[in-house]
């Protein structure tokens, strides 16, 4: 079973990488981009029946650093 995990910086946490991407987009002539936030996408191939609690623990213990990041789990 494929599970998608999206890890994003919490609102209010400065994202210098997102800012640099934003500047680069402007440099390419793309106007009208208000803001860019960069995150991480992780695809897990887990055993069918893996519980929500286990997936949540994987995110909280390793995949995201909850001091600075939020995560969202997307099951098929």
């Amino acid at each position: 079973m494929k599970v998608n995990v999206y890890v994003t910086l919490k609102p209010g946490v400065l994202d210098p990488q997102g800012k640099a991407i934003h500047h680069a987009l402007e440099g390419l002539g793309f106007g009208g981009v208000a803001d860019v936030r960069a995150g991480r996408f992780i695809e897990l191939d887990v055993a069918d029946g893996t519980s929500d609690a286990d997936l949540d623990a994987m995110c909280a213990k390793l995949l995201a650093n909850t001091v600075i990041e939020n995560y969202r789990i997307e099951r098929p």
């Binding site: 400065l14 210098p16 640099a20 650093n65 001091v67 600075i68």
Partner: peptide, 11 residues
């Protein structure tokens, strides 16, 4: 230790 270390603000 508390907190986290992120990418330098100036990149």
């Amino acid at each position: 230790l508390p907190g986290a270390l992120m990418r330098n603000a100036g990149l």
